[in-house]
Each structure stands twice: as structure tokens, then as C-alpha cells.
Design a protein around this nucleic acid. Sequence first.
DNA 1: CGATGTATTGACCAGCTTCAAGTAACGTGG
DNA 2: CCACGTTACTTGAAGCTGGTCAATACATCG
Lengths: 266, 266
Amino acid sequence: MSIDIPLAAVRDDGGALAHGSDSGCNRCPLRQLPPFQPVSAEELALIEGLKRGEPEHPADALLIEEGQADGPLYTLLDGWAFSFKTLQEGRRRQILAFLLPGDFIGLQQKMDEAATHGVRTLTPVRVCSFRRDALWTLHRQAPSLGYDLTWLAAHSESSVDDNLLSVGRRSAIERVAAMLLDLHSRTSALDPSGDGRSMPFPLTQVHIADAMGLSLVHVNRTLRQLSRLGLYRTCPPGRIALPDPAALAGVAQLRWPLRVPPRPLI
Amino acid sequence: MSIDIPLAAVRDDGGALAHGSDSGCNRCPLRQLPPFQPVSAEELALIEGLKRGEPEHPADALLIEEGQADGPLYTLLDGWAFSFKTLQEGRRRQILAFLLPGDFIGLQQKMDEAATHGVRTLTPVRVCSFRRDALWTLHRQAPSLGYDLTWLAAHSESSVDDNLLSVGRRSAIERVAAMLLDLHSRTSALDPSGDGRSMPFPLTQVHIADAMGLSLVHVNRTLRQLSRLGLYRTCPPGRIALPDPAALAGVAQLRWPLRVPPRPLI
DNA sequence: CGATGTATTGACCAGCTTCAAGTAACGTGG
DNA sequence: CCACGTTACTTGAAGCTGGTCAATACATCG
């Protein structure tokens, strides 16, 4: 059994944030990375004013519970997570999207009375925690950041769209290949020093199955098949290698390379 | 039953609601319907200023093409449409969501260089067409409407989330039942004078198949099965009846009734 | 009155699920 | 340090859900 109490056991080291040009957010290592668009000093100050801290959560922790009424608002700083929905009791969950550093968490839940999907960590994570009213304040005080929020919401859908296309219309091997490539592209963009062939991979085969609408057993067979084709290899601990991404893209019915658009970071 | 705090703030500082204005948008019949939240006179004026017209399109018309660079921006006023993605050549499309009056079309495409999904009409439609720069103008000049745009984007994902849950984790009969109930709830909310049992239904079985990740043949068998169970009946022309929605919800593994939250209309 | 699109049904079979069993890796406590 | 529990991974066998192919019926519309 995992720890399922969203806010318990979380240490929040907020309150000690500097408010100057040399402040914390300005030195946020994420902002230096190529995928993220620059922001003005004013925007940065506003964001920093809404920040509450950088709590950490362990692996396999529930950040947002399905149906939760007034959940948190985060930007994922470090680690992996995923959003999911479940059908009734006991039946397997459907993973909607995998969340990587820079992804915004809780937007959807804040737009509704109750969270329509849950969010759970895959690895230990560090998040940037925002005040409960951050969404409205961002919109009101900085239209450009409000626009960015709409951007994030729209692209969050885009990611689910891709997943739905896979689950609805691709065969098992195509689905798995497409998923591996998607994660490969996104992690590569976040790690300019990477070798472009191997990547961190904290998912178990159960996660792949839950994301792709497949059974665990069949995911295993499919991965073995990709192995035999020389398109997939595990390189412990917690990493995998994709020796030939272009060929994998051929299997996935995907045009390569995948586009990773520049994106706002809030 | 509580309204989200930021939303309440939006409405509070919005000033007097539009009552006596004689403008076109004010008389928009959609705005009178219960699912749609009221807007202030100022907001309404801004929206109206961005409006370009109310073009009509025939049935089965492509409103947005996949990959299109600078597409249109609409609110659907009358008729049905759907968004979709396709894999390569010849292979069947995946329908992502069905669009009903009040739904915003083109938001996602405006947030990217190119449309990530296409949009096609199901019936003849009338749309409210906006200027190309409407999104940014709305955010800049009326934060409350910018907030509404984020709301619309988030709920657009929510709809795809539901679909993904169905396609990934429900059996054929559960999927079809869930889809019928979703459309039933949404159309009922838009038609207070309806009888609550029958609804307009412009979809063919091919559309159902494309939305649910099933083959046409199997959709047909599934509908016949629901017929035999007394949960589904066609009542031409272009309508269906769901004699027992609660029982159908049981089949779909869905709690009934479905919540149709009050929503912004732009 | 063909042409087209939609619905329906049967026969066959493949992709995937389920069930079952066994292996490997790892951490924990005696 | 090893026995044991736990979790992840692997493989085989059997069977079901749903796909494909094919044929027919039916309606609408030039």
C-alpha cells in the first residue's frame, strides 16, 4: 500500500522566498532549458509572488485524487507523474498523460468543482506550489500569462488527443512504439546533454498497459518483440535505450522527428 | 454546490449584467439557455466587437483541416460537428469529441503553429465567427473572458479524457452506452423543452465506430444488442430514444445523472 | 432507375485477454 | 548472511472480444 493522503507528510519550505531581480524563480534551472519561452521581469515577479514553496513528494504518491474538491496547483519541477481516471472498483485505471518537468498540474481541477482526474507521482518529485487563487490572479494581473495558461490547457488536451488516437486506432506494437517515442522526444528536449539514444524510464510495464489500454501480459510480449527488432533495450537502472528512433517511428506510423514546440513555463 | 472562488470574483467585479442592450449578441438564443453563465454588458460588447459574422456551412464540411496553419475561430451556434485525428493514408480516423452548440472551435489550433486535429460538420451548422486576433484581445482586454477561455480549453480536454477512458477501458457495449448518455445529457441541457427521452441524432454508425475505436460492423451488433435490451430505439428521421437512461448508465458503468456544469459562452 | 450511402447479418479468424506458472531482482529481518 | 516477502518481468496455453470479408436489404436522390 502506498501513501494516499494528498497533503499529509509533505514538508513545505515556503515563506523564505526572495523578492528581487536575483530571486529564486529567475534562477530556476528549468527556465534555462531550450523548450521554455522567456518571460519578462514583471511576469516573473508576479509568478514568484504566487509561489508558496517547493514541496517534495515520494514516488507513487497521490497528488490529486479523483473527485477532490479543492486541490493543489503545481508546476512539476523534477521527477515524473501521470494523470489518470478510473472506472468502477477494481477495474484498471486509464492513464491519460505522463507529466514531465515543466508540466502544469491541477489546472483542470481548478476549473471545476471537483477534479475530473487524479494525478500520481511515478518517481520522487519536487513541485512548485502555487496559491489557490493563482489562476485568477495570473489572468487578471498579466494577460500574457493568462494566455499562457490557455496555451497549457490546450496542449494538455493535445497530449490526450495523441493518446486517444493511439488507443483507438493503433495496434499494440504501434501504440507502444508511439509512446516510447513521445517520451523520448520530451525527455530529450529537457536534457540537452543527453546522448539522444537512451533516456530515464521510471515506468513499469503496468504503467504502459494502463496508458495504452492493453493488458500487462501483452505489453510484455510487445516489448520483447521490439527488443527482438533491435528497437528497444533496457539499460538498468531505470533507463532504456532506443537504438533507432527513426525505425521505431516507422513502426509507430509516426513522422520523425516529433515536434516539441517551445512552451510557456509558469 | 459551491461555485469556484475565482469564478465568483470574476462575476462580482463584472458590474451590471446586460439587460436592456439591443445588440445582436445579447439576443443570442444560446445565451438564454440554462447551461450558459451570464456575462456583463462590457464583456458582451467586447465579444461582439470581435465578431465577424454568422456563416453557415453544409453538413459534412471540413471546418478545420489537420495541419492547417491559420484556421478560423468559431463558436458553434447551431448544428453538430466533431474533432478528429487521422493516422496515415486510408486508415480510419479517430473522432476525439463531438461538438454541440456553445462549443468553441479552433482554440487549440490557434495555440499552435498548425492544427493538431481537424474539425468536420455533422449537420448543417451556423457558427459565430471571430477575428483572428480574438484570443489575445479577449485575454488582454477582459481577464474574466481570458479565464473563460482557459475554462473552455480545460473542459475540452475533460471531454477527451472521458472518451479515452471509454476507448481504453470499456467493453464495446459499455462504450456505446456511455457515448449515447453523454450526448443525451448535453443535448438535454441545450433543449429544456425536450421530453428527456428522445434526442436528435445525426450520427451514422460509422461516426460511432470512429469515436469509440470499434469497427462499423461491431457497432451495429452492439446497437442491436442495446435495442434488444430495450435501452435504445431509433425514431426517424434522425432521432433516437433512450427509454431507460438510468439502466443504460448501469450498462455504461456510469453514475446517473451525468453532471453538465454551467459554462461560459464566448 | 441506377447510384450511392446506410444498416444488417453470417462466417471466419486474429489480436488481445485471461489464467497460470515460473524467474529474477531487491530489501528486510531473524 | 540467508530465508523470505514483494515487486517486476517472462512465457505458455486457451479462449473471447471484436475485426475482416462478404452479401443483402433498404432508403434517398439525382
